[in-house]
């Protein structure tokens, strides 16, 4: 039995619902209050069991400011990330287009290492205003090696799946590394 610890960067444009997603996940589905701007980083810590093992992953979720203003501060706070959760708003095409920029910024913090990641399209409850196609997002995510999810934080739908996926990927990475350590001697 092992408990891993992962620094999870939660990134994306302002107002896509990063904080709402993190808080919903932390509280197991208790609704979050009104919108407040995140300055710098808020930390959410939660332990996620890895299915079919006795193991778990403690996620240290760095809920990060989407505003450009805080960009420089993030460079320091994002040092040595382990996993990435990239969020966009399915009704806001610009927020989807920004994902490439966010991905690049986080990956620059972990040169030469594999960085497990998920792409999360939020606000699926606003079906009539959808501007980003699921297939389009899926195709881009696949090309970037990210697992793709859609959620509605408002309807409290599928908000756990992305984090469980990250925990699973990180656990898999640990197993692979330990196997490699065995072959060294």
């Amino acid at each position: 039995m092992v408990k891993l610890a992962a620094k999870c960067i939660l990134a994306g444009d302002p107002t896509v619902g990063k904080t709402a997603l993190a808080q919903l996940f932390r509280s197991d589905g208790v609704h979050f209050q009104n919108y407040t701007l995140t300055a710098g980083v808020d930390l959410v810590v939660k332990t996620v069991p890895v299915p079919d093992t006795g193991d778990s992953v403690e996620l240290f979720i760095f809920d990060s400011a989407g505003k450009e203003l805080f960009s420089e501060m993030l460079d320091k706070l994002w040092e040595s990330p382990n996993v990435l959760c990239l969020v966009y708003d399915v009704t806001n095409e610009q927020s989807f287009n920004s994902c490439g920029k966010w991905l690049e910024k986080v990956r620059a913090q972990a040169p030469g290492t594999t960085l497990p990641g998920v792409l999360v399209g939020n606000k699926t409850d606003l079906a009539g205003r959808r501007a980003v196609d699921s297939a389009q997002a899926q195709a881009w995510a696949l090309g970037q090696g990210l697992e793709c999810f859609e959620t509605s934080v408002k309807e409290m739908e599928s908000y756990e799946a992305p984090f469980h996926c990250l925990a699973k990927q990180f656990h898999q990475l640990y197993r692979e590394r330990v196997d490699a350590f065995h072959t060294l001697v």
Partner: peptide, 12 residues
């Protein structure tokens, strides 16, 4: 025994 080892399990 160098064949056995300790692993770290997360953040530094």
């Amino acid at each position: 025994n160098p064949e056995t080892f300790w692993t770290t399990t997360g953040m530094f």
